[in-house]
Design a protein around this nucleic acid. Structure first.
Lengths: 199, 199
DNA sequence: CCATTCTTTGACGCCGACGTAAAAAAACTC
DNA sequence: GAGTTTTTTTACGTCGGCGTCAAAGAATGG
């Protein structure tokens, strides 16, 4: 009949372009032209796939969030020991460094949220998933008798997510005073005192 | 001779306008015109006092940071009991609610940093002050024998600041899932387990 | 090779924001 | 009220980004 559609691949390509561009120029001053250039296209072509920049950004965030959370939650199937699982969960939750493009997108978007209701929804969904992840790990450890929680699971999870967010933001935001290693140490110390010693 | 200068007052007025405007429209889409309107002036008049929007924003951040930190550090002279001091320090470090204009400016600026070196410097200075505040409180409590820290002071302070940042950001960012009360509770729990029970 | 559908380009007009500089207004002193 | 300095307005020109749309350029089946 005619030329077949091939939009999924293009969309994935565009999302990657968003991630790359965010890493270098930041999200706040991100233009359609930037993304298009990074993808090797023109503005018009990008608009062909997404109504506007906002739609593309939301999609990129959603995809990034899922990639991040799924990968981390997959640890549950690989690691049986709760202490080890907690340790790896913490490590996987922090950026690998200031140039971790995906994490940077997630954090920058976090900040930019509050603008549109859609953004807020996405960010809150992400937050829910982070909480669920930690809660799950803590519960498993408690059931196995490896953890002896001195806090309700919810509060412990809340605090661990908060620590993760703050350290992640600092690392990605270029606060040179906090290295990845230091952040992991600090989170480990906190978790240990909460009654859940990670490895 | 002639009309006397009265710039200090005007500058303070403009800074307040920045805080107000940030509270309503957010920092990311803040224009000179917005600030001018909020101050009851024209763009030109604002430019008469500051070279550009960035200079005004930096000044507003610096002023806001000092106001915040000074007020909080003043607690040290009022409250003798370390446990009480820690509790009040934690409370004073969190926004009063989603509409805490000053805190919102500080957090939004935090995020926008990384752009200019000046911004980064300011944000790092703020971070240093937060750390110093907590370190000081913890040390005082340890010396008085009220706290029995299970973490080095630095790590405990690091974690408390991280918790403060994360919860503050959530509150101000309109994450409805975290109330101020819940944040205080969680931080109190954490501090308690660190060996520094707040009141 | 042709008809059809998908994809991309390129040019256009439209804001919104910025910075400048000249001119008007205001606030004083004498 | 005249002179002087500070403050504010107003009216440009410029730049960058966005959205639209018609037209050109693939890619494929018949």
């Amino acid at each position: 009949m005619a030329r077949p559609k091939n939009q999924d691949e293009r969309r994935a390509h565009l999302i990657q372009a968003v991630i790359d561009t965010t890493a270098s120029t930041g999200l706040r001053s991100l233009s359609l032209a930037d993304v298009a250039r990074s993808a090797g296209l023109t503005r018009g072509a990008v608009l062909y796939y997404y109504d506007d920049l906002d739609a593309l950004l939301s999609e990129a965030y959603r995809a990034g969030m899922e990639r991040f959370c799924d990968r981390r939650d997959a640890l549950r199937d690989t690691i049986a020991d709760p202490a080890k699982l907690l340790g790896e969960t913490i490590r996987a939750g922090l950026p690998t460094g200031p140039d971790d493009a995906l994490m940077r997108l997630l954090y920058e978007f976090d900040v930019v949220a509050g603008s549109s209701p859609l953004h807020s929804t996405l960010v809150e969904a992400m937050y829910e998933r982070q909480l669920a992840t930690y809660r799950h790990v803590l519960e498993r450890g408690a059931e196995a008798g490896v953890f002896d929680l001195l806090l309700d699971t919810s509060t412990a999870a809340l605090n661990l997510v908060a620590l993760e967010d703050a350290y992640g933001l600092h690392i990605v935001g270029g606060n040179g005073q906090i290295s990845v290693g230091r952040a992991v140490e600090a989170m480990f110390d906190a978790a240990r005192l909460f009654g859940a010693p990670p490895v």
